[in-house]
Design a protein around this nucleic acid. Structure first.
Length: 483
RNA sequence: GUAGAUAUAGCUCAGCUGGUUAGAGCGUCGGAUUGUGAUUCCGAAGGUCGUGGGUUCGAGCCCCAUUAUUUACCCCA
């Protein structure tokens, strides 16, 4: 006999866990649909040509590849067998062998399959196209806290519009889901790739741009010293780093930070990359609009205000927020649940050229994603799950002997027809055992239908939580329970 | 890929500087006079101590290897 096991970084979900996860999915789905997003599902398997190169070198290594079917080592044609993987291939290493033995992989996220779908269906889609997608993704990562090899993402994206209203709605949806789940203490961080680029320019464009972003993204985690050390090893000079922290070290609220950064960029002589407003807006904003990032962040805030957004204390403009995925070009988002040691539970941003690599250039998209598994972990550590039931069953019918079991069937059918999840204990076990069963499963009601009750044409209903018992004529039972 | 930790009953874990038949709680099953649950009492079942070597008169404990799990780094949801 072998010990049963499941692959590293995967989990089984028991009935109670599934119920809780469904709750999370339902809150997210309702929110997405309220905002007009339509559901989409894509295959678990994608061709590796679709997946590779989209997530950087590190991402490619984290892809789960699926071995080709059949004898993938040879090619057989009309009885003629030629080796598919040659000795030279093996000599050259995995990179030469892999494309020959694996042409499919498990999806790594939902954004790239979505981009692939948009590119393939460009003719039939009506733009702007809003879709949401809730499916598992796989990464061959080393599992640790809040990190799994199989986990579920819930994405909502819009393609085919540059409107910043989409960005504002992302913030609204994030807040609605978190509030709906009872995760009240959260921080939505927002930044803009343009701001990061301006910061880089303000430093004089010295060193690697990507290294800079990766380093400052860790500021809240490793602190100023850690970031300084990392930047020094990447070849940044101390004066540059001082300039950087002068720019980043900003107290104040959302707009306060915007104006301070603007001043910083102007003094540093950063070349404006934004466009002057085509239509008249407030004269005060004019200077801001020279910088695309700052301008868009400001506009998103204004749109939120106009939409009735009230949780500005939970929305933070964080100029150090960088995020890894390289395809972001505009606003970027990330959500942290406070007082829980957990990575971000949601993130997203705008990509100006989402479908470009699939032969459909110039399509802008913006979207974000919830990590259901992390949301679950947060809810659990904060003890925010309320339900305890392991079963949907609301009502258990007891079973005394074959005759009473048979006699209970009409009532059972009636309850189910009324939409009340019910079950009859399958065996004529001791009543004690049947009550224990109901208790262990969290079934709230037990109907005792024994020889005595049957003789009198009544049923005894026990409310497990209170222990209270009521006797009703059989005909009134369903009516009493549907109230 | 780098570094650390852990592995004993179904679950969570004890197990002394190596010493005779391996422990608890929870869970499971049975019982506490007839048809009532989570509380109480009594009882039972359940372990080749991850696997393979080694040291020793003797190993759950020490050493080596191996596998699995887990935490942190990298990166990310």
């Amino acid at each position: 006999m072998q010990k049963p096991s499941i692959p590293q970084g995967t989990r089984d979900f028991g009935p109670a866990q599934v119920a809780r996860r469904q709750h999370i999915f339902n809150v997210i789905r309702r929110t997405f649909e309220t905002f007009g997003y339509a559901p989409l599902e894509t295959p678990t398997l994608e061709n590796l040509s679709v997946l590779t190169g989209k997530y950087g070198d590190e991402g490619d290594q984290l892809l789960f590849k699926v071995l080709n079917s059949g004898n993938f080592l040879v090619k057989e044609r009309r009885g003629e067998i030629t080796p598919f993987v040659t000795a030279e291939d093996l000599e050259a290493g995995p990179k030469a062998v892999l494309p020959k033995i694996a042409e499919k992989g498990l999806r790594y996220d939902l954004t790239v399959p979505f981009a692939r779908y948009v590119a393939m269906n460009r003719g039939t889609l009506t733009f702007p196209f809003r879709r949401y997608q809730m499916q598992p993704v796989w990464r061959a990562d080393r599992p640790q806290r809040g990190r799994y090899r199989e986990f579920w993402q819930c994405d909502a994206d819009v393609v085919g519009t540059d409107s910043l209203l989409c960005e504002a709605e992302i913030v609204l949806m994030m807040a609605q889901v978190l509030n709906g789940l009872g995760l009240d203490d959260f921080t939505i961080k927002i930044n803009h790739r343009g701001v990061l680029r301006n910061i880089y320019q303000a430093l004089g464009g010295e060193g690697q741009e990507a290294d800079l972003f990766v380093a400052i993204d860790k500021l809240d985690k490793i602190g100023r010293e850690g970031v300084t050390n990392e930047l020094l090893t990447k070849g940044f000079t101390e004066p540059t780093i001082d300039t950087l922290f002068a720019l980043l070290n900003m107290e104040g609220d959302y707009t306060g930070k915007l104006t301070r950064l603007l001043a910083g960029f102007v003094t540093a002589g950063v070349e404006p990359d934004g466009q002057r407003p085509t239509q008249d807006s407030d004269e005060d904003d004019d200077e801001l609009t020279y910088y695309r990032g700052l301008n868009e962040l400001n506009e998103v805030r204004e749109l939120l205000e106009a939409s009735g957004f009230r949780q500005f204390d939970r929305l933070e403009f964080d100029p150090t927020l960088a995020r890894g995925l390289s395809y972001y070009t505009g606003c970027i988002f990330e959500v942290k649940i406070n007082n829980v040691q957990m990575g971000s539970v949601s993130g997203g941003g705008r990509y100006d050229n989402l479908t470009g690599s699939f032969g459909l250039p110039g399509v802008s998209g913006v979207g974000f994603s919830f990590g259901v598994d992390r949301l679950y972990d947060c809810l659990e550590t904060l003890d925010l799950f309320t339900d305890t039931s392991e079963t949907p069953t609301r009502c258990l019918l007891t079973h005394f002997d074959p005759a009473s079991g048979r006699a209970a069937l009409p009532l059972l059918a009636e309850l189910r027809a009324a939409g009340i999840p019910a079950e009859l204990y399958p065996d004529a076990s001791k009543l004690q055992k049947q009550f224990k069963y109901a208790d262990a499963k969290g079934i709230p009601l037990v109907i005792v239908l024994g020889p005595e009750e049957l003789a009198a044409g009544v049923a005894k209903i026990k409310i497990m939580k209170t222990g209270e018992e009521t006797v009703l004529p059989l005909s009134e039972v369903v009516g009493a329970l549907t109230v």
